[in-house]
Design a protein around this nucleic acid. Structure first.
Lengths: 378, 378
DNA sequence: TTGACTTTCCAAAACGTTTCGGATACAATC
DNA sequence: GATTGTATCCGAAACGTTTTGGAAAGTCAA
């Protein structure tokens, strides 16, 4: 379509508008005609095959640029070639606004795709039923070469589905049975992160450490929680010092949970609030502020220590700055794509474009380490 | 590909691995063969044409679901049908981490695409040269039906390019010459927003209002700044009360700018810091905190008022909560897609899926209004 | 002069759909 | 019995590439 500026008169009003005019995108045929060769030769010239003379190749190249020719990616993929596109099909139960991590991840993934010379096709699904059709269509349609999974649950029927379909994929996160099902994934060690954090709090003198978390339908939430439990056990803190508020899904629920914890008798009241995600920590700090309770490291002086997990860019701007565990997001996405690209080329994953090689759990299962970022909140 | 679990022996190590096995995705031919009809009939049955008997249609449908058939989207688009996919090709000069709004926008856009039953193809570009090739390829390849533009500059060569190429697009934001070039866009009225805000500050008694902004290479930054200027003029505040720090691109630069403003003699020192974006407001508050200056509404009492623009979800979590202008992001994306969908169908944009109809500047040019969100920071 | 080899090119098939222009069979009408 | 109409189906072309399996022409050695 070529758009032309024109003037239309409607009654008394003069309207300027762009009028669409049919306009042909040049194809390989146009080049062949202009160069006086066959389309085969054009194709092979443009794709760098050796069986075309330098002169012809040059001429074809010139005509191609002159005509603003770009090969039709759709025709190319139909023919069986790679699309250099991967899909990201997150499973969003409704509100994204409540899920800053999703946006963060997608942003970093998009940039990482750019570095890997890939396009990213985002197809949002809401329910698990949707996802089946979406994955099957994605596989059958040849629009993408691979798939990035996120929001992995402790048991996740999606990986069995994808194995059945045969679409190359890499999961961000792992199921509980990852050792049996040898599928490719990259995960950040949530349990290790929680242990590092609890050790740190223990060293600061904390003995009653509360844990706040969202629902356990994603396995990262479980791993993080388990790390907390393990660390308490290592420090031989009794079972009943485990003070947990789970399934927090809104500011209201979080505020209520915080109020409940604060109303415990002095001997049971926690001095530190460990949160399963930064988002939750934001809500917790919001609630504490609303109740006039100071947040900080000085628990003996009545402050309450708060920590998060993720290190969203925003965590640094909070007042006080949020002590949290950094998920190496860029590194994660880079490794995710390294793995996926290798899989799409049917190669074993070898070199990774990250500084430190990740821990290898299985042949295609990688674990990255979170880092404790100490700010003022704990 | 069908993946099978097997055991491989490498030296002494026993490795379990998934072995890829060629596996056929069913096509329209498979269904035709199984149903004993032609592929034409299958196609027409599945697409709801009337020239196929109810019995045949039913049988074909059953076989299709039994075989897990999904039509190949690539073949379909090659044939000239719609792809139900739009592209988002932002122009990122490097760091995304410094651009929370980009991630926010993309997240909301992805969800809005879901509501419009569209897929979103994200192709990040870094330089303006990249973008030419990307747009042309997108247009020629038939992978997408339309395009969403963002980060519009005061003069933006991309819209001329797209008009030449003939790919339907809608811009988020507008160039300075939008009245001459009658291209479709949706924008949020930055100038109006700034005026509302400055009026509010004026009513609060502020007379020396500083303005801090990033570079003026995007036109939203210019519109917002112009609104500030206009509002100062309306209140007959002299030109020399304009205290502007522009081209702020990092925390360091922002901190330096804040220090400069704070070091002005008492008669010139601003009582309010108006920031061109939330991101910048975060940095300003960070700097003020580092210098021990309290942020808030009580300027007579020595507090400094700080405001932002965007209302990122995070603005509410700041301490004190950030007073800012809300960009109606969901509404913007919805209207953007309404407009684009209409354009892709060669129809004039009519009904919008938003509550209040947006202001119409031109035939396909819409302006949404930001809303002042008053929190504690100003 | 022949055969072998190299260089350069191309026709046709294939990828999986949709669509155009009939074709067939049967019923209804004159 | 011929004509018209209707319901149901199908063959073949088209979309724009890549790839396969040669073909033609030229070069070189024997």
């Amino acid at each position: 379509m070529l758009y032309l500026r024109t003037e239309l008169t409607l009654g008394f009003t003069l309207i300027e508008a762009w009028i669409g005019v049919a306009f042909d995108v040049p194809t390989i045929f146009d080049i062949a005609k202009k160069a006086g060769v066959s389309i085969t030769t054009v194709s092979r010239a443009l794709n760098g095959y050796s069986d075309v003379s330098p002169k012809t190749r040059m001429r074809i190249r010139e005509i191609a640029t002159e005509l603003n020719y770009y090969p039709n990616a759709v025709a190319r993929s139909l023919q069986g070639k790679k699309t250099n596109t991967i899909a990201f099909a997150p499973l969003l139960g409704g509100h994204v606004e409540a899920r800053p991590f999703f946006k963060e991840f997608m942003g970093v993934l998009a940039l990482s795709c750019y570095n890997h010379e890939l396009s990213l096709l985002v197809t949002v699904a809401e329910t698990a039923e949707d996802i089946t059709g979406i994955y099957r269509e994605l596989a059958g349609s040849g629009r993408v070469d691979g798939l990035i999974l996120a929001d992995i649950g402790p048991r996740d029927e999606r990986i069995a589905l994808l194995n059945e379909i045969g679409l190359p994929f890499v999961a961000f996160g792992r199921t509980a049975d990852y050792e049996q099902l040898n599928y490719p994934f990259v995960d950040v060690d949530g349990a290790a992160g929680s242990r590092i954090l609890v050790n740190y709090l223990y060293a600061q003198g904390h003995r009653r450490i509360a844990y706040l978390t969202g629902p356990f339908n994603t396995s990262y939430a479980l791993y993080r929680y388990n790390g907390y439990r393990q660390s308490l056990a290592e420090h031989t803190l009794a079972e009943d010092t485990r003070i947990v508020q789970a399934d927090l899904q809104s500011q209201e629920q979080t505020s209520a949970a915080v109020a409940r914890l604060l109303s415990l008798p002095p001997a049971e009241k926690p001095t530190a609030f460990v949160c399963g995600s930064d988002q939750l920590a934001f809500q917790v700090m919001h609630a504490l502020r609303a109740q006039g309770r100071p947040v900080g490291r000085d628990w003996a002086g009545g402050q309450i220590a708060v920590s998060g997990f993720d290190d969203l860019p925003f965590a640094a701007y909070l007042q006080p700055g949020l002590t949290t565990l950094r998920q190496p997001m860029e590194e994660t996405c880079a490794v995710l794509l390294d793995l996926l690209v290798a899989l799409m080329q049917d190669k074993a994953a070898g070199v990774f474009s990250t500084e430190a090689p990740p821990v290898q759990l299985g042949p295609q299962q990688l674990l990255l380490q979170p880092a404790l970022i100490i700010r003022e909140s704990a």
